[in-house]
Structure formats: C-alpha cells, structure tokens
Design a protein around this nucleic acid. Structure first.
Length: 315
DNA sequence: GAGTCGTGGGG
DNA sequence: TCCCCAAGACT
C-alpha cells in the first residue's frame, strides 16, 4: 500500500484490510471484487490485483509462509526491488540494500551524486550497498527513510538537525537543495471523453460496469464511458452513448492523472430498464460499497448530486 | 530505458 | 493555483 503513497493516505485502508483479512490465507480466500472495492480510492489499482495474487501464491504455492530472502520475495507479484529488500532487511535481518525515494535523495546529497535520476539509480544502489552493514540492516533502512522524510526533505532540509551533516558532501558546499538532479519531465497531455450515468426510476439504482483488468483503473467499476486511453481521446457527445435514453448534459469533470489530464463530459438519464447484460444495477444506498475510483465517484456526483452516498472522502 | 499506472497533501 | 512528490512495479 505504501508504494508511492503517503502513510496518511494508507492508514485507514491498512486498518480495514488487516481487520477484514487478518491472515494471508484470509486474503487469499477473498473475492477479487471485494478486494478491489476495499482498495477503491487508494489509486494504482494494479497493486490491489498484485496483492491478492501474492496472497494466493504464498498460500497455495509456499504453504502459507513468505519466502525469507530478498530474492525469493521479489519473485512474488507486486514485490519489486524496494519491497523485497525492505521486507528481507526488516523482517528477516538480511543486509539487503533498501532504496526508496527518500533514500535516493539522502544518498545523492550525502555522496554528491551529480548524475540525474533515473540513470543515477545504479550509483545510488552501489553506495547504499556499501553503507548497509550486517548489523541491524532493518533499523538502518528505516532510519534512512525517516531521515529523508523528516530532516533531509526535498525542500529546505533541516541540516542543522541532521546527524549526517558533517559527512554530507552536498552540505559541505551548500548545494544540498540541488539534489537529487532529475531529468526534465515532458508536458502532460490533455485528454477528453464522455461518461453516461443512468439511474433506474423504480429505485434510484445506478448502472455500472467493470473495466478490463489491463490498463487504466483496471478491474474497477464505472458508469459507461467512452475511451480515453493513453492512445486516443474518446468520443465526446451524446452520440457516443452506450444505449438509447433521454440523456441530458450534467457538466464536466476534470481529473489529473500522473501522466495526463482528463476532462469528461457527463451525461445523465433516468430510465426504466437496460437491455444489456454487461453490467449491474448498484443500489443507491450502498453505492459506496462499489469498487469506484475517485474519478468515477466525481462523475456520479456530477450527474446526481443528491446521491449523498457517493460524496465525501471514503470511510 | 522509457512509459504506464492514482490520489491527496503541502509548499 | 500549480507543482511536487509519496516505504515503486511492471512492461
């Protein structure tokens, strides 16, 4: 959960996951849909699919026990260089080189690594391997991460409080805020599409479908939308509607993703039935139980502001 | 190696 | 308001 996500954002999700699925075999036995629903709002949804696949692998192929080496751990779905090293060091006392975003920043400053990210990663790893001792490797990794999170911060690092200040090569020349150097990022493209929110007259239920497992928001629920993939914009108007209804415009929703900005035209309609088996009616009172990413919650709220269950932060 | 993949908070 | 970035992984 903490991959590219702050502790504050993760905290409640972690609590709910571990209460609902306390043991790895509990999670392994869960349905895909309930895990995606519990992850909804946290982002990077491939992590949820990987976490579930990982729990099933550990339960079914490793006799319910996690591998105890970084190499073995990295073979699990969703467990890469950082996570495998962190678990090996913290849980199993293996002197593995743990390198996360914090440690990249600390190390480029400490060792004055001028090479820009991401190509600096190899040098950084070598320096971290050199600094990682066999004694208390897990505490060392967490100390370095906490140093980056609280003192060696991206802006205005608190060098006067830093235990490594005298050893820091960047600090010695007063250039600490320049690091890490980074390659210039390209401009975010702007993409458009349309979304269609249908509500059933009899009970106010909302028509949803499931997005394919691959790609953006993979495996998550949505009201029917046009394509808005990284390849191409979707169609924009009513003519792109998934089925015939008395559609009316309900404004637009803007959403920023990591690598593009998106604007969706939202249309809404009240209907009696749908001749379509590629979706389901989500009851109005329990629509917050659906695996709806934040973008799709905004879309539904734009179409039907009176649907109170959709509003506000997830709880 | 370079893209792809979410969301929210802080400066 | 805008930009940055967060206990990265995968293709």
């Amino acid at each position: 959960m903490l991959q590219q996500t702050t502790v504050a954002a993760v905290k409640d999700y972690f609590r709910r996951f571990t209460e609902r699925w306390p043991r790895v075999e509990d999670l392994a036995a869960a349905e895909d849909a309930e895990v995606m629903s519990a992850w909804a709002g946290l982002g990077y949804y491939a992590r949820a699919r990987n976490l579930l696949a990982c729990a099933r692998t550990v339960t079914r192929s490793h006799n319910g026990r996690f591998p105890e080496t970084a190499e073995g751990l990295q073979a699990l779905p969703g467990v890469g260089a950082y996570t495998s090293a962190a678990i090996a060091a913290i849980a199993f006392d293996e002197p593995a080189a743990v390198v996360d975003g914090n440690i990249e920043r600390v190390t480029t400053r400490l060792c004055l690594i001028e090479t820009p990210l991401p190509s600096a990663r190899r040098e950084i790893r070598l320096e971290v391997e050199r600094m990682t001792l066999s004694r208390r490797p897990g505490d060392f990794a967490q100390a370095m991460m906490d140093l980056g999170a609280t003192i060696c911060t991206p802006r205005r690092p608190a060098c006067v409080l830093c235990p490594l200040a005298l050893a820091c090569k960047a600090r010695a020349t007063g250039r600490q805020e320049e690091f890490p150097h980074k390659l210039a990022k390209k401009a975010k493209p702007f993409r458009r599409g349309a979304a269609f929110v249908a509500r059933r007259r009899s009970d106010g239920a909302v028509w949803l479908r499931r997005r394919p497992n691959q790609g953006m928001l993979g495996g998550m629920a949505e009201p029917p939308t046009t394509g808005w993939s990284s390849r191409s914009d979707g169609q924009l108007g009513i003519e792109a509607a998934p089925f015939d209804a008395d559609w009316s415009a309900a404004g637009t929703v803007q959403h920023g993703f990591t690598h593009f900005d998106l604007q969706l035209e939202v249309f809404r309609a009240d209907i009696d039935y749908i001749d379509d088996d590629d979706g389901w009616w989500a009851p109005a009172e329990s629509i917050d139980q659906e695996a709806l990413p934040t973008l799709m919650r905004s879309v539904i709220a734009a179409a039907f502001p009176e649907l109170s269950a959709i509003r506000g932060p997830r709880s």
